[in-house]
Structures are given as structure tokens and as C-alpha cells.
Simulated scan of single mutants.
Amino acid sequence: MKTLLAVAAIAVAAVTFGPAAAQPAAPIQMWRLDCGEIQVSNLDVFSDTFAYVGQKKTLTDSCYLIRHGENYLLWDSGLPGELAGKTAPPSGPFTMSLKARVTDQLARIGVRPEQVNFVGISHNHDDHLGQAADFPKATLLIGSEDYEATAKGPSAARLAPWIKGGTKVEKIDRDHDVFGDGSVVILDMPGHTHGHQSLLVRLPRTGPVLLTGDLYHFTENMRRHGMPSFNVDRSDTLGSFDRFDTIARNLKARVIIQHEPDDVAKLPAFPQAAN
């Protein structure tokens, strides 16, 4: 009888304190933000096999705010904020413009910069880390090699709050579960840069969403597995293509190519959120 009672007590404890009694999943929402526009006069820079000779295209530059309970992650930070309301002079085949800073967009939904707990950077190009310094209290989540390269390079000012010290940096070398419950996971996808990352967000109603970073730049580029001429490692990129596509199939995920206007339109227009 004592043994039975002990077993019963353990069972009760397991129900009370174990996984079955875990706290309800934190509410998750995701907003897409307009972080700029890029006119490309020579689309063939996105192919090392001459796939887009003579073609032009307008790309978007999108960022994302994810709310997890009371916490916020900003994924990518767009073109430099000083471009707001302006169009920059052409830089090679690229002409970039920005309508509004990320902070001004977040103000529309009542989110202040100091409320953003994490800034996740897919990679260290200026159209993705341009406004990161507007969130100096946030923990920076970035590929370790991309962080080190930026700290020594011409874009170091974009990450000044973290390079100067006093603000936390998590340098990531593999997949990273941001909130510890599998709902928001940074995926290691090297090749475009050495520390390039994509993002998996599991929304309660929409289901799994995969944000590419710059693994892909537009739909045709994804279909052909086009290799931008400026990627740092061809073999790593091909491996990341395969991994990303397999994850998308296995999870039946909604893929958002962050520079593709048609893909960005798969999510609600700001200030509405995807749930």
C-alpha cells in the first residue's frame, strides 16, 4: 500500500510540476516593416552563371518585429536611418531609398526602442544592419564571423553600442533558439556571408514562417538556386539552399524572401500583425 501511495504521489507531482503543467505558450505576433527599396539596374550581379543579363528589378528591403509574450525581437534593421525620406546616389547597380525609420514605424504600434529585447541580424550588409544602433539596449544576435568582420570594417559604426561595450552580444555559430521554446529559431545558413542566418517563426494561426535573410533575393533566384556573384562561399551556399528548402518542405512553412515584394505581401500590411 505504501508503494502504491508513493507511486501515486510521484504521479501527482509529475502532473503538477512536470511538462503537463508548463505555462501556456507565450502569445506570438509578427509585423513586417518597410525598411527600404532597392532599384537594381543590373540584375545579373545575383548570378554567377549569367542568368539575368540585361535585366532590372525593384527589390524591397524588409524587416520584422516579433512579439513573444512581453519580449520583442527585431529581425534585421534595414537601410541606414539617415536615408529616411531620401534616395541615395547610385552605388554600382544599386539605388537605395527609405521612406521611414524603423523607430518611427514601431511608434505607430506603441513599441519604444528600449522595449526591444533582441536585435537579430541575418548578416552584416548595410541594408540589414543599417539601423541596429537605434536599439542600443537590445541584445545583439549575429553570426560570430559577421560580427568580427563588421567590428574591423567600414560599417563598425552600425554596431557601435555593442562594439564599444556595455551592451550584450551573442555571437552565433549554429542554430539559436531565441526564447527557449522553439517558437523563434535563428538558423545557421552560411554562404552569402560566413555568418549568414535565416529565421524560423512558428505563429499560432499562420503556422511556420521562414524568413530567408539573403539566402535568396527574389523568386526566380530561388527557383534556379541562383548564386550571387558576391557570395563568399559557393559550396556553403549550396548546402544552405538544400537545408533551407528541406526545412520548408518538412514544416510546410510559408517562405518569405525578404527582398521579394511578392513574398513580403504574403504577410499582413503594417500595422496589422500576423498571428
Rank of each mutant, 00 (worst) to 15 (best):
P136L: 03
E37S: 09
H225G: 11
A253R: 07
G92I: 02
A151P: 10
T103H: 00
G85D: 05
R108E: 15
A132S: 14
R202A: 04
K171P: 05
F94A: 00
I256P: 11
K137H: 14
L159I: 11
V119Q: 10
I257W: 07
Q131R: 03
A11Q: 00
D188H: 13
A132P: 05
K57E: 14
T95R: 02
H123Y: 14
R174Y: 11
A20I: 06
A138E: 11
I247R: 12
T237F: 03
G85C: 01
N117H: 14
G69Y: 08
V185H: 04
A138M: 11
P154M: 10
P228T: 06
P261A: 05
F230P: 04
S144H: 13
A157H: 14
V255Y: 03
P113I: 10
Y64Q: 07
G213L: 06
A151G: 13
A269S: 12
S91F: 12
L199S: 11
T60L: 08
I142N: 07
I163W: 05
T95F: 03
L65H: 05
L74Y: 03
A133S: 07
A13W: 00
A138R: 08
G195W: 09
G153H: 09
L199M: 15
T103Q: 09
F135W: 08
M1R: 02
N117R: 15
Y52P: 07
A88G: 02
